[in-house]
């Protein structure tokens, strides 16, 4: 325990967790955008769109995240030359890898967001959509004014779980060298094998501190915002 101040002085523990948080938040925004689009496709009246949405979820959900992220780096960047950062900047590699990781995490998490939203749509009683149609609203208005607002509120708890999973999954970004928490942990364990337990404890507590309040916040939100029926 008394090595903790030393470790904190020698290694930038908080910067690593800052990267983890950025990675999580940016990917969450990306996943929410893609995931909502896919969810809308999956409930749309156009059969082709439904098929495309379902195919996206099936393909992405069954692929390991590690494979996606490694592919973003080795495949997209090295083989295909997809570049997401300014090549002349001197932090090119770091920025590019960070953005590729965000891309991989967003694509992966989007499939879970789409599923969470679809379960949210299921919590909306049939009568809501029927009433909307009865007063003459077309599909898009039924969806945007009546169903989706209630679906989002019904999906808050599962979305919270997706966010927690995303926070933990962001550690996989270390595989392409993004300097987030797990990469620093690996580095520290390589250099200080004498205090393995202390190091693991520090990082584990860091993740508990990140995920526990998220869980409580989303539980509280879902209770507050749930549509009373």
């Amino acid at each position: 325990m008394d090595q903790i101040p030393d470790l904190l002085r020698d290694y930038d523990f908080f910067a690593a967790f800052r990267t983890t948080i950025y990675l999580t938040l940016l990917s969450a925004v990306g996943a929410l955008i893609i995931g909502t689009t896919v969810a809308i496709m999956r409930v749309s009246p156009v059969a082709t769109l439904r098929t495309i949405g379902a195919a996206y979820v099936t393909l992405v959900r069954n692929t390991p995240l590690t494979l996606l992220i490694v592919f973003c780096n080795l495949g997209l960047f090295i083989q295909l030359g997809v570049v997401l950062a300014d090549k002349n900047s001197n932090t090119f590699i770091t920025t590019n890898n960070f953005r590729l990781a965000v891309l991989g995490l967003s694509i992966y998490t989007a499939s879970f967001v789409a599923e969470a939203l679809r379960s949210g749509v299921n919590t909306v009683p049939v009568g809501q959509a029927e009433a909307a149609r009865a007063i003459g609203l077309p599909f898009v208005k039924t969806l945007t004014y009546i169903v989706l607002p209630q679906a989002f509120r019904g999906a808050i708890a599962p979305l919270g779980n997706v966010l927690i999973a995303l926070t933990k999954n962001s550690t996989v970004a270390s595989v392409i060298g993004v300097s987030e928490a797990s990469l620093l942990m690996k580095e520290m364990m390589d250099e200080r094998p004498d205090v393995l337990f202390v190091i693991f404890g520090m990082f584990a507590v860091g993740f508990v501190i990140l995920t526990l309040p998220t869980g409580m916040l989303f539980t509280a939100l879902s209770k507050r915002l749930v549509v009373k029926r």
Binding site: A116, S119, N122, T123, P125, G127, A157, N161, I164, S222
Partner: peptide, 20 residues
């Protein structure tokens, strides 16, 4: 899905008729 948030969430989302 909501196992993490246990009872609270399952109470919050009563089974609607569309719940198949």
């Amino acid at each position: 899905d909501q196992a993490a948030v246990a009872a609270a969430a399952s109470m919050a989302a009563p089974a609607g008729p569309a719940h198949s």
